[in-house]
Amino acid sequence: MAPEPNEDDGRWQEAGDHATSETIPTDAIIRGTDVVKEYETGGQIVRALKGVDFGIAPADFVAVVGPSGSGKSTLLNLLGLLDVATSGDVRLRGRDVSTFTDRERTRKRKETIGFVFQSFYLIPTLTALENVEMPRMLDRTPTKTRQRARQLLERVGLGDRLDHYPDELSGGQKQRVAIARSLINDPDIVLADEPTGNLDRDTGDRILELFDELRRDENVAVVTVTHDDYVAEAADRVVTLIDGRIRETESRRANFEEGPDP
């Protein structure tokens, strides 16, 4: 039975040390075994993932690298409960996700996952603050949501940009709004697709520092798909996908806390 989210911050309360030197963490929030994903395009079946194993533990920082078409986005979609595997076993806190209805998947996604999309996908008619509030706008707790959104924006250093619209923000600022938005539901995992792809090095640095802080302070795991070696270097683990298979898993740091101070 999965533990219930804590009312205050919605975070899964995990006991014990999650530092592990194994490739697949044992206390994984989400775990996949021999996962295969096939698509049908133009009458042809394309096998995007050909039997991969994965697991994401609390406060993990995993970088998924690989050439385009290697199945990175497919893997991210499975982790984000946006898609279901064709075969193999994907479990969220021990529960088989293939048994979820669309409605359950949607709810679990809301409770567990935060997304940072490559092109941000901020809603142009909403201010920075409202964009951050967006995932919780239907929750009818406007005061609480607003408080949390404000706090998150201050945290990503945009306390002075609350009422700016996306077209009044720079790329890095939009990215930080997107990150703040991904945290509004107090997720266990943040999935970031090319989080530094559109940013200069300095801004990218700040985003990575922010990820470290969030892992340390909020116990959030970060999984990122990247082409950027520099992002991969900052990760605990680097998973290399080639042609739908994991070729290499490299553990750089057993735990970010043991890594060099930022």
């Binding site: 984000g80 946006l82 669309d102 409605r103 949607t106 709810r107 996604r109 809301k110 409770e111 996952i113 997304f115 999309f117 996908y121 809603i123 967006m134 995932p135 239907l138 938005r181 539901n185």
Partner: peptide, 15 residues
């Protein structure tokens, strides 16, 4: 894509 974002962030179909 914006509606996709809403769905990804846990907006049910009904919403």
């Amino acid at each position: 894509s914006e509606i996709g974002v809403l769905r990804a962030y846990g907006y049910p179909k009904r919403a």
